[in-house]
Design a protein around this nucleic acid. Sequence first.
RNA 1: GCCCCUCUAGCUCAAUGGUAGAGCAGUGGACUUUUAAUCCAUUGGUUCAGGGUUCGAGCCCCUGGGGGGGCACCA
Length: 502
Amino acid sequence: MEDEATGSAGSGLAAERARRQAVVDARRAEGHEPYPYRFDRTHTAADVHAAWPDLEPGTETSDKVTVAGRVRRKRDSGKLVFLTVADRGHELQLFASHAELGDDGFQTVKELDLGDWVGAAGTVMTTRTGELSVKVDRVELLAKSIRPLPDKWHGLQDPDTRFRQRYADLVVNAEARRAFDVRHAVVASLRTTFHERGYAEVETPVLHEQASGAHARPFVTYHNTLDMELHLRVAVELHLKRLIVGGMDRVFEIGRVFRNEGLSPRHNPEFTILESYEAFADVRDVMALTEDLVANACRDALGTTTVTIGGEPVDLVPPWPRRRMVDLASDAAGEEVHPSLGVDALRTVAERHGIRWEAAWSAGQLVEAVFEELVEGSIVAPVLVTGHPTDISPLARVDRDDPLLTERFELFVDGRELANGYSELNDPVEQRLRFEDEQRAKDAGDADRGTVDEDYLRALEYGMPPTGGLGVGVDRLVMLLAGVDTIRDVILFPTLRPEVGE
RNA sequence: GCCCCUCUAGCUCAAUGGUAGAGCAGUGGACUUUUAAUCCAUUGGUUCAGGGUUCGAGCCCCUGGGGGGGCACCA
């Protein structure tokens, strides 16, 4: 009877799904395919708005369009139904009248639930309040939504559900869509900037015998046939420089790297890194490249070079200030901070400022600690921090003016490191010594430190030209430009613990 | 790994230790120009799980789980 036919017996999620499934079954029984294979549309919602931008209220055109989208809202006043359908973030109203559609077509409209995908053909019109609409004469269900969407007005608020069910988040939360629109525009812009400069985009292995190129703990996995442990990469650096040795000249990679560390609003175990290497360039060229990459990405994604940080506008137009790490640290400490002071003196400086240090730390690590504690968090507008101590920069070339520092920089914005680059060390003998220092530190118990990469050294022995290299945290760049403060808002599917039941 | 906060209907949220509610969604009804349509009626709950205290627990306590924030580590 009535209850069976409409599936209205009971309530709750299970009953709602059953009711909607019953609509699918009924359509099949009537000879309609509820999940058709394809649908031809002539216009997207955005196209319609662009093509008929300012029709007077109450206009009826004879312009035919065919559109498709997801039903987001439905206003049913009996013999007339207004449907608001969403099509890639743009909305369009369908004006569905019984007079125009007849019994069958109107029944199809009546049966539509919020969340259903629908295709419709009709003429462009405006209602008497001026809303651009399509007066439909044909409506087709393209896919039934069996599961009800989250609240049409409040959206999805629970962060857990937003991340686990990103599909639902994207349907109902415009802010979520916007952050990823920014992301996609940023990534496209980065590629464009590189392509315009003659770089080749490359892809290098994710599975490494030894993860190297950054101070980080790797994920360990296992290959059955080779019967060996493999490590997921923590950086792409050494492979790209092998390509420079091979004469590829200008290369970049945008790829996922994996670091087996804690999660936070700024850290996801897998994240996207951009690295680039350019033969015959040094750190100054790389800083200029970085400025262009970021300014272009901002312009391409936002249409402006101004971003908002903590409620204040910040202009990203280059050039940005270049300040040596030792000078920034010295200014903040009110006394000289430089690795030449030696470990003992630097420990004293650290203690004077309440900075905790460890016995194993080198002079360079102490300098870095002073910088991180006293300076890093206070940088808001972009600053290129240069001249990192040699002992914390095992792959960077020694500064031509100061043997204790390197030709390196890190870009800081909003208290966060966004990029890191340097004049690449290309002397295989010196690189071996630096690797050996890393290995010693690792053997002494610092799991993040590196090992001696013999194959990389072999490559360097063939000769690597002078090279400038860059690494950019793409997720953090997107966070800055999208104006969000958690990395989970710019990673579609952030790492979560397994879900427990439903 | 440690500390703090949080978890109630499909969604968004209420509920001095005393009968678990509302809005949206859903269902039934009215309505041919609505805009979160409106109006009338109405279904829907293992209050994250398991223990405990109490005459009585969504609320207090313990254990466990998910999530958020902080610390640590890092980009």
